[in-house]
């Protein structure tokens, strides 16, 4: 169970960015992302401007820049993919550091990296300045279907519970001599995920029972 206040991505504060109503922040984020994605990737200076906007918002929110940067590791798989593109893509070749790479591939990689990084930074800024429950309130105010908001709420609530379930299962397996890094234990890990799914499914049923017991009729208050 996580100790301390708030969600892992949340960085408590009282700045103007923190106080802004959540639905405005969500709208701003979606608007920003759409603009970034729609920008042609060879308008290089414009991307500099976007970066400036995101960094200014982060500075304004008084969330340490390093706090956001450290959480950007989530982007790594995309970075790896982006770095591969110039080598795989076809088209005219050009030399970079003595390696022949595809020119359109290079441009595609740049576009992917720039847009992805901006998107991740902006999303992390929202997460760092808004409690998950407030994001849900914001989404509801934006008239997202109620069922979708409910499902997202349960996801936030039970993510920690399911993760610690998995953690306990792993500890008990390790205590009985399993080495999770060895490929020989992969079948066991797969079965563990199956067991975790069933456990979570059964928990879902128990939660539903508890909800019915308190008069649930399909709508969260």
């Amino acid at each position: 169970m996580g100790a301390g206040h708030g969600h892992r991505l949340y960085f408590g504060g009282h700045s103007a960015v923190h106080r802004l109503p959540a639905h405005l922040k969500v709208l701003a984020l979606v608007g920003f992302m759409l603009t970034v994605v729609a920008t042609p990737r060879d308008w290089y200076p414009v991307f500099g401007g976007y970066l400036l906007v995101v960094v200014s918002v982060i500075l304004l929110s008084r969330v340490p820049l390093l706090y956001v940067v450290r959480r950007m590791v989530i982007e790594v798989p995309f970075v790896v993919f982006a770095l591969l593109v110039p080598f795989i893509a076809t088209g005219p070749r050009t030399d970079v550091l003595g390696l022949a790479v595809s020119e359109p591939g290079l441009l595609a990689a740049w576009g992917l990296l720039a847009k992805g990084t901006l998107g991740v930074m902006a999303s992390l800024t929202l997460a760092a300045t808004t409690e998950p429950t407030d994001v849900l309130v914001g989404l509801r105010r934006l008239h997202l279907p109620d069922l979708v908001v409910q499902i997202m709420g349960f996801m936030i609530r039970y993510l920690d519970v399911v993760t610690s379930d998995l953690g306990r299962m792993m500890v008990s397996m390790r205590s009985r001599g399993m080495n999770p890094r060895s490929p020989r234990s992969w079948p066991t890990l797969a079965r563990t995920l199956g067991a975790l799914f069933i456990r979570s499914y059964e928990r879902g049923e128990r939660v539903h029972l508890a909800m019915l017991s308190r008069g649930y009729t399909g709508r969260l208050p």
Partner: peptide, 22 residues
């Protein structure tokens, strides 16, 4: 298991769940 019973984001919302349904 209280984790089965407490499914809302905050304690206040959770306690309000039943009476709001009423």
């Amino acid at each position: 298991d209280p984790d089965d019973q407490l499914f809302m984001g905050t304690v206040r919302q959770d306690v309000a769940f039943g009476p709001a349904n009423l």
